[in-house]
Nucleic acid binder design. Structure first.
Lengths: 185, 185
DNA sequence: ACCTGAACACCGTTCAAGT
DNA sequence: ACCTGAACACCGTTCAAGT
């Protein structure tokens, strides 16, 4: 007799949230529209009311992932770590952002944050930093997953030493590192 | 009456070559086992005689792409350009290598080439360089495709200025750039 | 405004069986 | 050694129709 009778109606936000949660459980290759629909107890076709295509839904997820990077970092290294952490916060986050950043402006927010953190606000350095962070994090993240899923070869952590590679890359591109020791002035 | 009667029998090499050619035509998202089989005029199940899974076939393609990077470059910038060009030589090459480099040692060859080209043979710099090149090239490549396929917004080339970003990143990580102008000594 | 039901044109992979 | 044929358990997407 109540006017609101339907048990679960969804909107863009609830669909995106369910998809993001499912991403963490199953990973990007197994994140299908049909699985997302099943999680929402809805027919697959229902999703197309909220998102015109799977690509657009994935772009929304990428936007939500990058939206969490802090804008106020003054140090490029801290800013870069913030971006990396946002990407690592969700399974296959880096690969998702990387593969959707062509169309969606998902990575634009991260790039702005980098630009602001740079001493001379050099946009080319900001772009290079973003490219490095995305490539590095995508590699690290999938190596993590391959290792945990017991892929092959040695059983020692393949992430070892990669933090140093990250810092080296960021400081170098940001223009903060010594070029060459050149004696020891 | 001849003993060799069968018109087309295939091996690993011919399957991989057909797959690589098809990749350039249709792109990574549309590269299916069934399409590759159709191109070879063979049933889809026939491919599984040569490759145990699609993933392993893709890893072979990634290996073939990176195999073409020159090992003998002495200059890190020249070496990095060689890697980038090898990735750009096939559609979605960078994304393919990036997404398979966790398991397959496809990128190991490129990393060795970088290491050799570095003045001090620093393996951390080589790793950082590889990560930057892969991230950068993957982004550039998909932006190229998005632009050619008439995605949206402005119609000017989105690749403009990206060469400078590439050079900046490579020289910085290689340790060849000035840290900061610092007056103008 | 939001969803169902049914259909369309696809996927990767397995496996017995053929030659 | 290499392939067929048939099957299994899936995909993304569209669209009329329901409420």
């Amino acid at each position: 007799m109540s006017p609101d009778r339907n048990p679960t109606r969804h909107d863009r936000d609830s669909v995106a949230r369910a998809a993001l949660a499912l991403l963490d459980e199953v990973g990007l290759p197994d994140l299908s529209m049909r699985r997302i629909a099943a999680r929402l107890e809805v027919q697959p076709s229902a999703l197309y009311w909220h998102f015109a295509s799977k690509q657009l839904l994935l772009a929304e997820l990428a936007d939500r992932i990058t939206a969490r990077v802090p804008i106020a970092e003054s140090d490029p290294v801290a800013c870069a770590r913030g971006i990396r952490d946002a990407l690592l916060a969700h399974r296959d986050g880096a690969e998702l952002v990387l593969s959707t950043s062509a169309l969606g402006l998902g990575s634009a927010h991260a790039e702005r944050a980098l630009l602001r953190s740079l001493p001379e606000q050099n946009p080319e350095r900001a772009a290079a930093l973003l490219h490095f962070i995305l490539g590095h994090t995508a590699l690290v993240q999938q190596r993590m997953h391959a290792h945990s899923h017991g892929a092959a070869s040695g059983d020692d952590d393949p992430t070892a030493g990669l933090d140093r590679v990250f810092d080296l890359g960021v400081t170098a591109i940001a223009g903060l590192s010594a070029t060459r020791p050149r004696a020891r002035a």
